[in-house]
Design a protein around this nucleic acid. Structure first.
Lengths: 382, 382
DNA sequence: TTTAGCACTCTCGAGCGTCGAGTGCTAAGA
DNA sequence: TCTTAGCACTCGACGCTCGAGAGTGCTAAA
């Protein structure tokens, strides 16, 4: 957009004042903010032109002006100064990421909470595997003559397990055979290659004993599907109510309901690259529910084939620069923490609630990094 | 409370009309509702007495009456007719519980969603282990010379695992030794018995190789703590905004903020017995935030030492009978599903998104019931 | 091109009267 | 003693007017 310097200054001033005060901005306020020697009348005529360019609008005659979505867009693309996260906020993020986060299973929740706490907006966090998932290795552990455990190592270094209780006793001697066959036929293949004929063939090869092969195959399919699924979490939706834009409760309800639909979340605008911040402003959103809201999202690298996304949703009146800096910083921290070397420095086991004595902790942290796969029980909670 | 039959009728009418309309109830409306031959003047004087007994109150002179917390209490204890869940609602619950639920890790979420969807109130779901947790059995699986998997079977039949990457190679021959020692010294003991001296002794016995024993011990402590922890989830908090009681957004915010604090959730009134419905009305709540709200909660049996709780929170103006019937029904369903035999009938593997062909599924369902321990990866999401 | 001046528009809140719902009281009737 | 018709009274909700204040667009002069 080709704007005179003066128009740029005025547009910036309007955006920044409006973000701060939530009140339509008048020509006089702009003059003050700019510390300019111009008169308000001049600014008025400039603002009038900015309005006819579609960058500003008036809620009603004789009110000040507020930025339109295109107005914000020009501001974000051309005028906004990138700010970096404040020290205090950086400390909040560091504390949250250091140690505690990575050891907990409900990481998406933690990330979401952190993000919404920091930004004061509803936040969403997603993570999913981009590549094909397969199983790298099977092990079977005999517990008793009715019970065994399946342990599967996935190609992204996570481990899944399942305890199987049979109603009729089985011969544990079958386990090595199962192991050989499953490691030969079921490793390295994606979930959609596990067909009835493969299962039947395997059953014949093992000489099936009451559906054990089918149970294992079912487990394999289940976990491959589940591991690939994009998990999504929303936190701090209530923060919406803090903003005057949602004084009309129905608007807030509409957005919160929208956010609670995981399928809709997945359709939200997402950045292409890790680390990139994607800002989608008001009318730029495809979803009707979000025509008055903005979405800021950033992608992070979670190691292996796994990528994560964090984002916030708020009114278009938003300090985009600050929010972007927050999200960027969190994403950077997460990428560092989750992809390879980061995990080591983050101090696995270095948080207070695990080690029983100091020595035990410090002494052995060099032992290596570990990937935490404490599994869920039936409650999805540990 | 010793009330004349007439007073009982009037109190019931006031409660029921108020629940339905959210408007203060006048004497004329009561007469109509009762279909009584009494005049409104008579009802007025009765209502006046009910007010002086503390069961009704007037928002302002010349308004109708609304029930007080004690008024609701008398109604709930003595006057309310227990209704049973409607057919339609029962079908909703059955569909939600049948198959889908049990196979998913995020069960508390599912339960919470179901409950809030059904009741139209914010719902919370918790689950936790009541007894002492310990590990029943250890297995170690060698992957390569830097990597092994710890598999631990807990005393409640859940399986947990962890993949350990070492920075220096180790000798896989150590694994049987580790297995023997951990199965001898670390099984059957609670997390607080795992002391530095036990770990040191074990390290000496194994001839430790770069902190492996400490890593395993850390894992054990971590998972015992985590498994015992009471998980809590809130769903459908937005539903609060539907009720006129929370037209003032700050009230809704206050409650939603309150609900988002897991620690506070744990302090909510809970029933003592499985299946029992606990209703806590308005001022009966200890938390100040809930003085104008009611909590209805029910406990269910999740098999083994595990118990779960579901509850809803809403304004005191609430159809207690209906809500209680909903919660009861869900709790019954869950108990059936999760404790023993229920799991079998619920049709594990019987949902559509897993089996690749029908035969595979139906043919083998008799093979036994399985306990699903598909573990979390670092993302807390599968 | 800029600006002072001015008429104009629109929102917001205060103040005020009306309306209607519902009450409490009283006195008469059963 | 209980019930009821009648009536005066109270109070919130609603709608109306009006003035204040903010901000505009236009015009004419610098």
């Amino acid at each position: 957009m080709n704007l005179s310097e003066r128009k740029k200054g005025i547009l910036s001033a309007v955006v920044e004042l409006y973000v701060k005060t939530a009140e339509p901005v008048g020509s006089k306020a702009v003059v003050e903010a700019l510390g300019s020697a111009l008169s308000s009348a001049t600014v008025r005529s400039e603002m009038s032109e900015l309005e006819s360019m579609g960058l500003l609008e008036q809620p009603h005659t004789s009110a000040g002006r507020i930025p339109t979505s295109p107005g914000y867009r020009v501001y974000v693309n051309e005028l906004m100064r990138n700010q970096s996260i404040s020290n205090d906020d950086a400390i909040v993020v560091n504390n949250a990421l250091d140690g505690k986060l990575i050891t907990r299973p409900y990481m998406l929740d933690e990330v979401g909470h952190l993000t919404s706490r920091l930004t004061k907006y509803p936040a969403y966090a997603m993570a999913g595997v981009t590549g094909m998932m397969s199983i790298a290795r099977f092990d079977f552990i005999n517990v008793d003559s009715y019970t065994f455990i399946i342990v599967a190592l996935l190609n992204n270094d996570t481990v899944k397990n399942k305890l199987v209780h049979l109603t009729t006793p089985y011969n544990p001697a079958i386990l090595p055979k199962l192991s050989a066959i499953f490691n030969a036929s079921f490793t390295g293949i994606p979930e959609n290659k596990i067909t009835a004929s493969l299962i039947n063939a395997t059953e014949r090869a093992v000489g099936d004993t009451g559906g054990i092969v089918a149970i294992i195959a079912g487990f394999v399919i289940e976990l491959l599907v589940e591991v690939k699924a994009l998990g999504a979490r929303v936190s701090g939706a209530v923060n919406l109510l803090d903003h005057p834009e949602y004084k009309d409760v129905r608007k807030a309800q509409q957005i919160i309901r929208y956010l609670s639909d995981t399928n809709e979340l997945k359709k939200l605008p997402a950045p292409l690259e890790t680390g990139e911040v994607k800002i989608t402003i008001g009318s730029e959103n495809l979803a009707n529910e979000l025509k008055d809201s903005s979405v800021v999202a950033v992608k992070y690298d979670a190691g292996g084939d796994t990528q994560g996304l964090i984002g916030i949703i708020g009114p278009t009146r938003m300090d985009y620069s600050k929010i972007a800096s927050h999200l960027s910083y969190i994403a950077q921290g997460l990428s560092l923490l989750l992809s390879g070397a980061g995990a080591y420095h983050a101090g696995l086991y270095a948080n207070a609630d695990k080690p029983r004595d100091e020595d035990f902790n410090k002494e052995h942290i060099h032992a290596g990094h570990t990937k935490n796969n404490v599994g869920d029980d039936d409650f999805g909670e540990d």
